[in-house]
Design a binder for these strands. Structure first.
Length: 733
RNA sequence: GGGCGGUUAGCUCAGCGGGAGAGCACUGCGCUUACAACGCAGGGGUCGGCGGUUCGAACCCGUCACCGCCCACCA
């Protein structure tokens, strides 16, 4: 974060950007005022844009009732979920191709409460003949579709509700009732008149709610300001098609394109107190309407002083959409603007893809003539482990400050990064944060160990450093990890990067390398320093505090780790070394397990004979390591293992056999069971491999290396089975 | 109504064409001179169901089921 450039959308500079944009769009004909159906929240008393409305299914009612025709006894049935809106009906719509109603088009119906009202039956393509009765009551002031059809037919628009959703003077005897009371009262009256056919209840259907307070939104006719969106949407789609803006994950591209393709004009005026006031003035003398950069006290057209500013304010997203350039000083051509626009990446959650991201792209292209950013990285929302959004009313909120108090900021940060998968929600729990704290402790303790043996020396790794197998192994694993992490960060896979680092540091560096280094601390020092150095650098962005502290101890002269270069892999990856190390690890684990299986305390030292098969040199070179890690008394290399007597046997995947002298504690039954189980495992593997190789299609069509690998595995397991079987036989029965 | 995710070990999730993984939880052993917020070893899964493609499918395709999300002017 660059705290020197902190900004707020109501700052003076950003306010100037807002005005500039408004005036430009106004003068370019992209901002207009219109009396149209908008989403109205009766509780907040303001208009909302389409995307601020949250659709939710509710149990309502679907009522079918009849309008009598004026000229004869015929009637026409219509259906509605908002029966009270019939007070504002000024017509009935049917589909032009609907034969049932063809003979009625052009005739008129009579409103039961307003018999003098002119209510024609009109044909319009927008009617769905399949729904309900196929005839729609027309309420141009209270339904967006009816509004459009009403415009086409020239129907009167009668607004029957006030801003609080109470029936107004146009509602006759229902005046004063709120919309829900009116819903009941109107139904009752119609029933009394015998005009109601069907009351279907509950009728589950989707209803819009205010994003802020949850109140049911009322489609309401009112005078508002709009931005014409289609001219802005087209270029915004094009830059994505051309690849100038990329989404990660890519699937959000489709959502973005679909939204823009079907976009409708944006209602930007709000009847609330807080916000940028709309920079439009009205002249009471000549009726001019003009937008102005400066506060106006005279009319642009007639010079009159009788001007007043619009009292509405702008949707907060109107100023937010300018963020990528308004924060850099635009409309001035500042140094920052030239240097930092366009930016490289926009990191944000999917819930504001339309509200913010799409609009930044549109306004950026319009005013800067360039994209605001190249990559859009979409992450999820932080949720609890049940997948629920955190909310105070649910009581499932994990307070970050509380977690920081208890586990540290680094632990909280690591747990969030660890949970981050592009496009997915991040599920966090206190357990996970605790794990991250444990990881931080592990890093702390490992560093303490490394540093404790160094004193003031900082031996550095260079070409002259003599490297043992485990040195080359950990350096190979380090390079492997750095490569993986780099690749994952490139694609914003922070979670995978963290999991790789966690595994490398804990399971490889701490569990194996540090343990091995204890045998030869001085010689291992350059490698310990090197690996820890790289770990601290690469972990720093996620765990800044602990890494900075440890860095100051590892590199007291170097200054902040923030200024250290990002570590790159150093060409030390070596598959052969990793394979060798794997064979030794397998042997150590096999010996440890053998002791445990026979109930030998792990601390008790035992003598071991090893028949290394083809790996004599390797095992010999690693002898002291094996003795230390498996806690042995001694390890002798032999060509042939002694007869089983008071010994137990084990074997690794690579076919290295070992015999452990258990003295008088050996339990032959235990040993037989162990060997029998291992033979069964080998049998299963052999059966699997033989099955595959017996399949001619597999041998013929699978890649050569896959087949070869399968053959090698088969041989390996066969050898092991033979050795295990002879071990078992030697025990007798 | 349309679209997008998800369904893998008891829990939370990775893996997304060639021998099923992690953390937590669980079992046994252990104060081995960095770490018991730890170490060592282990048990545990017909990878949602059914079809298909392929020599080979947790992974690709189709379909169904159940969860979740987004969009939507069926009154």
């Amino acid at each position: 974060c660059d705290w020197g450039r902190e900004r707020f959308t109501m700052d003076e500079g950003l306010s100037r950007a807002v005005r500039t944009v408004f005036v430009r769009w106004f003068d370019d004909g992209l901002i207009y005022r219109g009396n149209r159906i908008i989403n109205w929240c009766p509780r907040c008393g303001t208009a909302l844009s389409d995307i601020e409305v949250e659709h939710e299914d509710v149990d309502g009612e679907l009522i079918t009732f009849r309008y009598p025709l004026t000229d004869d006894g015929a009637e026409i049935s219509v259906a509605t979920t908002r029966i009270e809106t019939m007070l504002g009906d000024t017509g009935v719509f049917v589909h032009p191709g609907d034969e049932r109603y063809a003979h009625l088009v052009g005739k008129k119906v009579r409103h039961p409460f307003f018999p003098e009202r002119d209510m024609p039956i009109v044909a319009d393509e927008a009617v769905d003949p399949e729904f309900g009765t196929g005839a729609v009551k027309g309420t141009p002031a209270h339904d967006p579709l009816d509004f459009e059809m009403g415009e086409r037919a020239g129907l009167e628009k009668i607004n029957i509700l006030d801003g609080a959703a109470h029936v107004n003077e146009n509602g006759g005897r229902f005046q004063g009732l709120d919309r829900y009371e009116a819903r009941k009262a109107v139904l009752e009256e119609l029933q009394n008149l015998g005009l109601v056919d069907v009351v279907e209840r509950p009728y589950r259907h989707s209803v819009g709610h205010c994003y802020r307070c949850g109140t049911e939104v009322e489609p309401w006719l009112s005078l508002q300001w709009f931005v014409k969106m289609q001219p802005l949407a087209r270029p915004a789609m094009q830059v994505v098609t051309e690849g100038r803006i990329r989404f990660e994950p890519k699937r959000f591209e489709k959502a973005y394109m679909d939204w823009l393709a079907n976009i409708r004009d944006w209602c930007i005026s709000r009847q609330i107190w807080w916000g940028h006031r709309i920079p439009v003035w009205y002249c009471d003398d000549c009726d001019a309407i003009f937008a102005s950069m400066e506060d106006a006290d005279t009319c642009e057209r007639c010079g009159s002083n009788n001007v007043r500013q619009d009292t509405d304010v702008l949707d907060t997203w109107f100023s937010s959409q300018l963020w990528p350039f308004s924060t850099l000083g635009w409309p001035d051509q500042t140094v920052d603007l030239n240097r930092f626009y366009p930016t490289t990446v926009m990191v944000t959650g999917y819930e504001i893809l339309y509200l913010w991201v799409a609009r930044m792209i549109m306004s950026g292209l319009y005013f800067m003539d360039d994209v605001p950013f190249e990559d859009v990285f979409i992450h999820g929302i932080v949720r609890d482990f049940q997948g629920k959004k955190m909310s105070k009313s649910l009581g499932n909120v994990i307070d970050p400050l509380d977690m920081i108090d208890r586990y540290g900021a680094d632990a909280l940060r690591f747990s969030l990064a660890y949970a981050s998968i592009p496009g997915n929600d991040m599920k966090v729990s206190e357990d996970r944060i605790e794990d991250a704290r444990n990881f931080a402790n592990k890093l702390w303790n490992a560093s303490r160990f490394v540093l404790s043996n160094l004193g003031d020396r900082r031996p550095e790794l260079d070409e002259a450093t003599e490297l043992t197998l485990e040195d080359r192994w950990i350096l190979s694993r380090l390079d492997h990890t750095l490569d993986e992490v780099a690749r994952e960060l490139e694609t914003y896979n922070f979670g995978e990067a963290m999991r790789d680092l966690y595994g490398f540091i804990w399971s490889e560096f701490c569990d194996w390398y540090i343990e091995l280094s204890k045998l030869r601390q001085d010689q291992a020092a350059p490698v310990l320093v090197h690996v820890l150095d790289r770990i601290l650098r690469v972990l720093h962005p996620v765990m800044p505090f602990i890494t900075e502290e440890l860095w100051s101890r590892l590199r007291p002269e170097a200054g902040t780790v923030m200024h250290a270069s990002w570590p790159k892999s150093g060409g030390r990856r070596d598959p052969e070394v990793e394979a060798q190390m794997q064979r030794l690890q397998d042997l150590v684990v096999a010996l440890r397990r053998l002791k445990i299986d026979h109930g030998i305390p792990q601390g008790r030292r035992v003598a071991v004979d090893v028949d290394p098969g083809g790996y004599g040199e390797e095992v010999a070179a690693a002898r002291l390591s094996i003795v230390a890690l498996a806690r042995l008394e001694s390890l002798e290399l032999v060509d042939r293992l002694p007869p089983p007597g008071g010994a137990a046997r084990t074997i690794t995947a690579a076919g290295i056999e070992a015999s452990v002298d258990l003295g008088d504690v050996v339990d032959l039954d235990v040993e037989r069971k162990r060997l029998t189980a291992r033979i069964a495992e080998a049998e299963a593997e052999i059966a699997r491999a033989e099955g595959k190789l017996a399949d001619e299609a597999f041998v013929a069509k699978a890649p050569e290396n896959v087949v070869a690998k399968e053959r090698a595995k088969l041989e390996e397991h066969k050898e092991n089975r033979a050795k295990l079987t002879s071990q078992l036989q030697a025990l007798g029965s």
